[in-house]
Design a binder for these strands. Structure first.
Length: 282
DNA sequence: CACCATGTTCCTTG
DNA sequence: CCAAGGAACATGGT
């Protein structure tokens, strides 16, 4: 479930769910997910700590706590490929792959992750390496263009570079390029300035629309199958809602929704890219 | 069985 | 030193 929009929507749901609560006890079922923090360190830092706030940076979540001794603590969360987080109600069964569980003053916070690629750690170094948020005022088309000039990698691959721009993942990279009518194969340093402008607008619009869409969906994490979100999401009764959300991703061989020509799948940097060979000529 | 999957990091090669 | 490519991580779905 996790690119910037999904993480943003999750943050908006978790904030009120954690408001005013503190951590009674921490259970770690998958210590690796804390790396390089140890289970002991996490428990020492957070047992008895009170939730103070939650922000998002790129695809990361930053949990703020006030520890028992009065010290402020930041905990970093990342969903990896398959991570989910939710506050379960009392007596609710834990999912099979619950990696970390916080028993709260009221309720239970669950970080579950089938593939265990996610993170929950006191090591904040990953965030320092992130590039700007897509809507950062300083991140102008001029800045974007200057960075792209330095690379001959395909533009699709550059969009996934979190040190260039934070938060774009494999799905929305394809979607943004389709929106901007730019070929994913075009070398980053070959983009015209007008294309860079269009691409930045497209990235911002695609992500904003996904957040707006996700924000209207009633999440119901606890009950099982529904992660309530986006591409794989199926909140009850809103199935059709998702139909038209993705224009190219995972639509290989299907007709382009603009021109009807078949959507092409290719592999770049070991990841699938989808695009329309007719609409995205250059 | 084969191949695919929303992400990041590490290692190798040039 | 850097850029680029690929494997590894771990589990499940088709």
């Amino acid at each position: 479930m996790p690119e910037l929009p999904e993480v943003e929507v999750l943050a908006r749901h978790l904030r009120p769910a954690l408001h005013g609560k503190s951590i009674r006890r921490i259970r770690v079922n998958r210590p690796k997910i804390l790396r390089p923090t140890t289970e002991k360190q996490l428990q020492r830092a957070l047992t008895g700590a009170k939730f103070k706030g939650l922000t998002r940076r790129g695809k990361y979540l930053l949990f703020e706590f006030r520890a028992k001794g009065g010290k402020d603590i930041t905990l970093l969360g990342h969903l990896g490929m398959t991570g989910r987080m939710f506050v379960a109600r009392k007596g609710e069964a834990l999912p099979k792959h619950a990696a970390v569980v916080w028993e709260l003053s009221k309720g239970t916070f669950v970080f579950e992750d089938t593939r265990y690629f996610g993170r929950m750690t006191l090591d904040l170094s990953a965030v320092e390496k992130l590039g700007p948020e897509p809507w950062d005022r300083e991140f102008t088309p001029e800045v974007f263009a200057r960075e792209l000039k330095r690379s001959r990698q395909p533009i699709k691959v550059k969009l996934l570079d979190q040190s260039l721009i934070a938060g774009v993942g494999n799905i929305y990279a394809s979607e943004a390029l389709f929106r901007a009518k730019i070929s994913p194969r075009l070398a980053a340093n070959k983009l015209k300035f007008a294309q860079v402008e269009r691409l930045l607008d497209a990235v911002r619009d695609i992500l904003s629309e996904a957040i707006a869409c996700g924000s209207t969906v009633p999440l119901n994490f606890g009950t099982g199958k529904s992660d309530g979100l986006f591409y794989f999401g199926s909140a009850p009764g809103v199935e059709d809602y998702y139909e038209e959300r993705l224009q190219v991703y995972d639509r290989g061989g299907k007709p382009c929704l603009v021109c009807g020509s078949p959507i092409v799948r290719l592999v770049q940097a070991a990841r699938s890219t989808f695009f329309c060979g007719r609409c995205q000529k250059v």
